[in-house]
Design a protein around this nucleic acid. Structure first.
Lengths: 223, 223
DNA sequence: AGGTCCCCTATTCTCGATGATCGATGATAC
DNA sequence: GTATCATCGATCATCGAGAATAGGGGACCT
């Protein structure tokens, strides 16, 4: 999975793809901002073609929106969309837990605990960008245990939307509330209790949705 | 959703995209066969660029596989992948039912019943291509009721994989078994019993997986 | 005979240029 | 003063050609 990624990186379009994706996550390309093909091409010293290919891939991924002859702009997920994505994520992770817990090795458990510690450390620093990354890693690791590659792929396709939330809307919210959501999940995993994990995930989702809604309300709902 | 599709059709890349997708579904491009950019371009009277963009989109969709400097070939999902996809599909549809049944109108119910009739008619004719289409429509309609656009989108991204199965592996199996899977779902919907729908869907999944496995075994498992 | 290297072909990948389309700006008519 | 229309700059969409790469077949060496 990872080695494949390092091999595939001889193609400009892929590099541009990563560049843009990272740029979007880091806030360099904020939501709703335009991405001008020629500008990016000049910026990276390439021609338009690879940029166009990358943009088209990003469109399918749901990260940007392309209108013919008008160009690409970064999608800014509406509040409903964010909550919808969270609901789907939870359903997927719940399936992941049901499949994964019976297969979970001790090594898995150690790794997840470590990732959880890293997540908590990120919460402590208050660095939202890193927090989003750690959060993604933690959940992805749980998904990976399921052994269902398709599940991981689908979840991954959903992740950019959720991440946008954490990096862009969270500035108005207190990130420390995230801290409390994950320990129950870890405890349930340590007990190897799949049902408990599912319950913990459901609570995670409910709390996150609630927080999300109130954060959006404070922001002045534009959707 | 549909109007957007008709608007976007002034761009060659999109037309090529549809052309290829249809070609794959119809068996014109069988699994594992190469798709040569220059050939398709000549075939359609365009240059390579739009073809490349279309292929890249199809790759993200999971329909084709692109290896750098080696080209694109139609993905032939392995049996494990198919079953994985089915599991994910079921989880998504289960969520869809839980969200959708409480919102279901009488008109929804009528439409679903009609789609179910159409599905049964397709079973009767034995036309596998049409059967795949009707099956997709039926399930998509249930998903749509949830009102969760993100859920529909994710499900849609998974659909090509499942459809490949019905059109390409089913030749060896008897398609009539599909007929028995759906009436329980419809009945549960008519009773507006979300839990019953979820149970019916779970059964649908189990039966489909079992059929799939035995069909693959007869075919000589290559995965 | 077996293995290694090199060349040759098919195809991908990239580029720079050209045509097509949009949105805004300003001119004209009423 | 307002509404309609032509024009212009910016940007997208497409093209055709040229460099880069993989895979296969033959010549050469051992």
């Amino acid at each position: 999975m990872t080695d494949e990624a390092t091999i595939t990186r001889n193609v400009l379009a892929d590099q541009v793809h990563d560049y843009l994706l990272q740029g979007i996550f880091s806030g360099r390309f904020p939501p709703d901002s335009r991405i001008v093909e020629t500008r990016v091409a000049r910026e990276l010293g390439t021609s338009q073609a690879p940029v166009r290919e990358a943009l088209r891939a990003l469109e399918v991924l749901g990260v940007v929106d392309i209108e013919p002859f008008k160009g690409a702009r970064v999608r800014s997920p509406s509040s409903t969309e964010l909550i919808e994505a969270y609901a789907v994520r939870t359903a997927l992770e719940s399936l992941g837990a049901r499949l994964g817990v019976p297969r979970m090795t001790d090594a898995d458990l150690v790794e997840i605990t470590e990732l959880h510690d890293a997540l908590q450390a990120a919460v402590a620093t208050g660095d939202r960008h890193m927090l989003a990354e750690r959060d993604a890693e933690f959940h992805a690791r749980i998904l990976a245990m399921s052994g269902n590659a398709m599940l991981a792929r689908v979840w991954r396709s959903l992740e950019p939307v959720s991440r946008t939330y954490l990096t862009l809307l969270a500035p108005n919210a207190d990130p420390t509330w995230t801290a409390g959501l994950h320990p129950p999940i870890v405890r349930a995993l340590q007990a190897r209790d799949a049902t408990a994990v599912q319950v913990a995930l459901a609570r995670h989702f409910e709390d996150a949705s609630r927080q999300l809604l109130s954060a959006l309300r404070n922001l002045g709902a534009k959707d």
